[in-house]
């Protein structure tokens, strides 16, 4: 029965993504205004607090506020750096980790609404016959540090500086001001407030303009490139800090054919070339979102697996691969215009 509904891991993941898109974007409206924003308030996905109907909040807005309002202020007063000050932040991180522990970076590949929106746009791009722009191994190396810069400067550094009084108060949540998920999720609820740029203060205006321009770029770029924003998302780097601490893992065994094959590299939406060349720890790269496409498109039995506490949840297999490539190429090009309906029969 389940196999009929979810014939592939990709189909299962897409269903989870759509359900989570509704939970993270409209969850508050469906389940009650007060109830669902209490789920974690530290979700490892870009679930935006500016969305009035969101089901939960992203860890980044919480950490920015705590650095701005609590830690920064306390540091500058140099008197109350006590557990009372740090406890809220520790609780945030602990809450985040309680969720993260079970799914690891699958929050990026399965839950994040911004990831889902980009994937949907990419699918539209395939239908429209747009070209696929990929990052070469050299180019992707240049892009990768940006996510760490985004985390250290926008999500952590500036809010702390603002709290200490070394930066303008408007820099209390600079990442949120440029986050494309803020615009995407609020627009999905027909709320146009966030797309209107703040004009009151220069810093707000600059950040707002930058955020809108980035959002516009991501929307169009996603038609011709896979997950353009995910590559520089500070949550990707934040989650990467914890990815070795979760029992949910991507595991790859060494195999002779890997050097010549490279299909898994083509299937990877994050252009992680290491997945084709490396094995062991190196194959579970910091950019991995645990989407599972590499495992789906690996033509050899159990070379790539997704494991939880050492138990295989999904493993590559030749038979599965043969079926999968009949439906969709590793790059995501559908082989049939009505894949969904055909599979349901």
């Amino acid at each position: 029965m389940l196999k009929k509904i979810f014939p592939t891991l990709g189909r299962f993941r897409f269903t989870v993504q759509i359900v989570m898109l509704f939970v993270t974007v409209y969850g508050g409206a469906l389940l009650g205004s007060y109830t669902v924003d209490r789920i974690s308030q530290a979700l490892p996905s870009l679930s935006c607090a500016f969305d009035k109907t969101t089901g939960d909040h992203c860890i980044l807005i919480v950490s920015q506020h705590q650095l701005h309002h609590r830690i920064g202020e306390a540091l500058v007063k140099a008197q109350e750096i006590t557990l009372k000050v740090f406890v809220p932040t520790l609780i945030s991180v602990a809450t985040f980790f309680a969720f993260f522990f079970f799914l690891n970076k699958a929050f990026c590949g399965w839950v994040c609404p911004m990831g889902t929106v980009q994937e949907l746009l990419y699918r539209i791009g395939r239908r429209l016959g747009r070209p696929l722009n990929r990052f070469s191994p050299d180019n992707v190396e240049r892009v990768r540090p940006v996510k760490w810069l985004m985390l250290l400067v926008l999500a952590l550094g500036l809010p702390l500086m603002a709290g200490m009084g070394f930066a303008a108060n408007e820099l209390g949540d600079p990442y949120c001001q440029v986050c494309p998920s803020r615009l995407a999720t609020t627009l999905l609820t027909a709320d146009t407030e966030q797309i209107a740029v703040r004009t009151g203060k220069n810093i707000n205006f600059f950040l707002g303009a930058l955020g809108n321009a980035m959002f516009g770029f991501v929307v169009i770029a996603a038609l011709a490139a896979r997950q353009p924003f995910c590559r520089i998302c500070p949550l990707l780097s934040w989650n990467a800090m914890f990815q070795r601490l979760s029992p949910m893992r991507l595991v790859k065994q060494q195999h002779d054919k890997c050097e010549k094959c490279g299909v898994c590299e083509k299937a990877c939406p994050m252009d992680i070339h290491e997945i084709g060349r490396e094995h062991g720890k190196k194959a579970f790269h910091e950019d991995c979102t645990l989407c599972g496409r590499c495992a789906e498109y690996c033509p050899d039995d159990d070379v790539i697996q997704i494991k939880f506490f050492g138990i295989k949840l999904f493993g590559s297999s030749r038979e599965y691969y043969k079926q999968r490539v009949k439906q969709e190429s590793p790059e995501g090009m559908p082989k049939n215009r009505v894949i969904w309906l055909k599979q349901a029969k």
Partner: peptide, 29 residues
Amino acid sequence: AFDQRSIVMGLGFTLLGMLGAVPLLRQRR
């Protein structure tokens, strides 16, 4: 909600970003 906010400028900057990504769409295969 729209006090000290400009939706026209917001759409303008969004459009600017979109234009920046258009070459990706037009790139030859």
